[in-house]
Simulated assay, not measured.
Amino acid sequence: MCCPILVSGGNAFIGHRKSASVSAKLMIDGKVVDSTSKTRNSAGGFKGSCSVLAHTVNTLGSDIAKWVKSSKKRL
């Protein structure tokens, strides 16, 4: 279960300001066993807006995958 929030501001001249946030719940057998909220920010440099936001979201996805894996090890 995830609820993403994406924010995109700026441009190539002043720098891209991108932010992606997500809240997630790990459920096993219908019960919440762990939850987390994660955020990733990027200034992006001189890359295109879409590529900066894509990188931010992909990195956040990796963060969530690592969290799920570590949560399952603790159970």
Rank of each mutant, 00 (worst) to 15 (best):
R17F: 06
K72E: 11
G44Y: 04
D34H: 09
V57G: 04
L26R: 03
G45T: 02
K31P: 08
K66W: 04
G61K: 00
S49A: 14
S35T: 11
V68F: 02
L6W: 12
F13Q: 13
G30Y: 01
S21T: 04
H55F: 03
A20M: 00
L53I: 12
A54S: 15
G45F: 07
K31F: 05
W67V: 05
G9P: 10
A12H: 11
R40W: 05
P4W: 03
G61M: 06
R74Y: 03
C50F: 15
S21W: 05
F13Y: 15
I28P: 01
K69E: 15
G10F: 09
G15T: 00
I14N: 12
I14L: 06
P4K: 08
G48P: 11
V7R: 01
V22H: 06
N11A: 07
L53Q: 12
F13T: 01
G9Q: 14
V68M: 09
K25V: 01
S51G: 04
S19Q: 14
G44Q: 01
L6V: 08
G15Y: 07
D29C: 03
F13R: 12
R74G: 14
K38F: 03
I5L: 13
A20E: 04
V57M: 08
V32M: 04
I64E: 02
S49H: 09
A43T: 03
K47L: 11
T39G: 10
S23V: 13
S51V: 10
I64S: 10
H16M: 01
L53P: 10
L53V: 02
L60Q: 00
A54L: 14
L6F: 09
L6G: 01
R17L: 01
G45N: 05
D29K: 14
V7T: 13
C2E: 15
A54Y: 09
S35H: 10
N41W: 10
K69R: 14
C2P: 15
W67H: 08
T39D: 01
S49G: 06
G30D: 05
K73L: 14
S19L: 11
L6D: 11
I64A: 10
I14F: 03
F46E: 09
V32C: 06
I28V: 15
I28Q: 11
T36C: 05
T56R: 11
D29Y: 08
K69A: 15
V22G: 08
G9S: 08
K66N: 12
D29N: 14
K47H: 13
I28S: 09
I28H: 10
V7D: 07
S42A: 13
L53M: 14
S42E: 12
D63R: 03
S49L: 05
A54V: 00
L26T: 03
T39Y: 00
I28G: 12
K47W: 12
S71M: 05
I64M: 02
G10R: 08
G9A: 11
H55R: 14
N58F: 13
K66M: 00
K25A: 07
S21R: 04
G30T: 12
K25M: 10
L53W: 09
A43W: 00
S70H: 02
